[in-house]
Design a protein around this nucleic acid. Structure first.
Lengths: 337, 337
DNA sequence: CTGAAAGCGCTAACAA
DNA sequence: TTGTTAGCGCTTTCAG
């Protein structure tokens, strides 16, 4: 049973040459039915499994696709990963995961690690796209697609949803519900492009209503629950009490809700809260979170399909795919009386 | 830059033989400092990366460890995975993940897939341990460790926490808080051993207080949020209103809480709820979930350390490692007045 | 339709 | 200390 059985053993036992065995396992060339059956029997009998290492070494195909993520346990990432994985399996690719913890150095290391492992393509999920890394990957000529909220500026294959529009729409929605003092808690770890874009959407909506930007209502946090909690807590402790809070990440939004409750306010009665992404927990928490729904699973699926197509040298219609988002009205935002 | 550079190219460019190059990249044999430097320079210059496929083919070491899980997105699994991953990286192993969706067939397929991919060992996370699969793995002689709540019965390497004791303790805790009608919602997809064990713990605690088992208070659900929601909803709809509910999984417990709230009761004022595992969301939800804390990260770390040791033929003191659990008192359980 | 042989990129004896 | 050489298990010409 120990997998020491090689193609040679099978060939000997079946009384044929190794090339014949190779032909039947790949059915790459015609083989007499009789011989074929014989070989198949021996394979079953011995429990032979072809060694993919040896195979890859000669074919240069590893059937491996690398996926680089900022943090596996982040639910946003997680749900995208589901899509990536399922499609990969469908096409008989294996996923090699690399976690960067949003560290630029680590990201570069991961690229090299994956390259070393002979991945045929890479799906990159990243909060911020590093120009340097983009160039590096292009120079390596490795098929890649990006899932990122800031990738549109580069000449690379990306799947995304529109940030500015979504932020604008949600802010507008909040405004329409009668909220004027809207806290804006960003969750984008010191990235300038992303924050700038989002801020632009937020600002645009306010400006349309002739509401001026209040710096005290803006916080730069992180994507985590703790990030949202701390940002909100800080604001409240400074005596700034908004009508509503728009937090650009669901876990952080829930952190914010808890901070609000811990400070003695109620959600949504006193302060409405809106999130971003629509991850699983958004429906589990009470009050259910009103949020910007993103088709996470699909984003993953589309991204990996792109790289598989690139691997197969198929033609891709679009370099940039933008998937639709929508505002998912639930319970955490109510009309302000 | 394209990684077509082989050891040969480096050798030629450095004016040495390929074995010398091999020696410096592995520093397996002494090489003159001068020559070494020369080779190192060429490597840097060309951006050469050794092909691990070729290397593995000859050394028979893939630096790959397979991890089989019932469901990546389950937070219990997820948090264990963090531990597994981190330790793997520490020892320079790469993780190959296989998702079985708790399907027996798929699990067998995964074992073979991983075997085919030449993994050096396997960490198996599974709700139920299949005897058949255990035997198969043993026959293959592949180093493996199991994280499972029902693995103790087999002669295999396992890491776990004590189910019966934990269930007993939590039930007792609930009893001590003055709850007598305690709903018991299991989350173990039709597994008999696990359910039997847990039920035993639950029953033992009740018996000690001379409380007889009420079948109406017992539900067999699934690990998911929905599973917990539906089980609880069903019970309530049948007119059975317990003093407390003990749900053997946190996500399901939160589902149960929501079902309770949706039926017009309050948690914990009307009905207390306790969970199991202590995953991230247990602290995020409000009321914060009182639950059985399990050292998830450590379980993963210990499990993979076991297989790494087995790979290195080191001696393992224990075949069965049982990690401590504890009852984490938070807000979802209160004293019954 | 089948076999012999070359070679994928690397490591590990074995000589020198 | 270094180079030569024989494979690792497989696919793929190239002859037959």
């Amino acid at each position: 049973m120990k997998s020491n059985i090689t193609i040679k053993d099978v060939a000997k036992k079946a009384g044929v040459s190794i090339s014949t065995v190779s032909r039947v396992i790949n059915d790459s060339k015609p083989v007499t039915d009789e011989v074929k059956q014989k070989v198949l029997d021996v394979i079953k009998e011995t429990g032979y499994i072809p060694n993919p290492l040896a195979r890859s070494l000669v074919t240069k195909k590893s059937q491996l696709i690398g996926v680089i993520v900022p943090e596996v346990s982040d639910s946003f990432v997680n749900e995208i990963l589901n899509g990536v994985e399922e499609i990969a399996k469908m096409y008989d690719y294996e996923i090699l995961l690399a976690n960067t913890y949003s560290d630029k150095e680590q990201e570069l290391k991961s690229i090299n690690l994956l390259r070393a492992k002979q991945v045929e393509g890479i799906v990159m999920i990243s909060w911020i796209v590093e120009e340097e890394h983009v160039e590096y990957m292009q120079k390596c000529g490795i098929p890649a697609s990006y899932i990122s909220k800031t990738a549109r500026d580069y000449d690379i294959y990306t799947v995304s949803t529109s940030n500015v529009d979504a932020t604008y729409d949600m802010t507008k929605y909040l405004l329409d519900k009668g909220h004027e003092k809207i806290a804006f808690v960003m969750t984008s770890q010191d990235d300038t492009i992303l924050e700038r874009e989002r801020l632009a959407g937020y600002e645009k909506a306010l400006t349309e209503r002739n509401i001026s930007l209040d710096e005290n209502l803006i916080k730069h946090g992180t994507t985590t629950y703790e990030g949202g909690y701390n940002s909100m807590k800080e604001m409240l402790d400074q005596g700034v009490v908004p009508h509503a809070a728009f937090v650009t990440g669901d876990e952080a939004a829930i952190g914010a809700i808890n901070a609000i409750c811990d400070s003695g306010y109620r959600v949504p009665e006193d302060i409405s809260v809106a999130g971003f992404n629509d991850v699983k927990i958004a429906k589990m928490y009470r009050p259910k979170l009103t949020t910007v729904h993103q088709p996470l699973y699909d984003m993953g699926a589309v991204a990996i399909r792109m790289v598989i197509k690139m691997i197969n040298k198929e033609i891709l219609e679009d370099k940039k795919i933008e998937l639709p988002y929508r505002i998912e009205e639930r319970e955490s935002v109510i009309e302000r009386r």
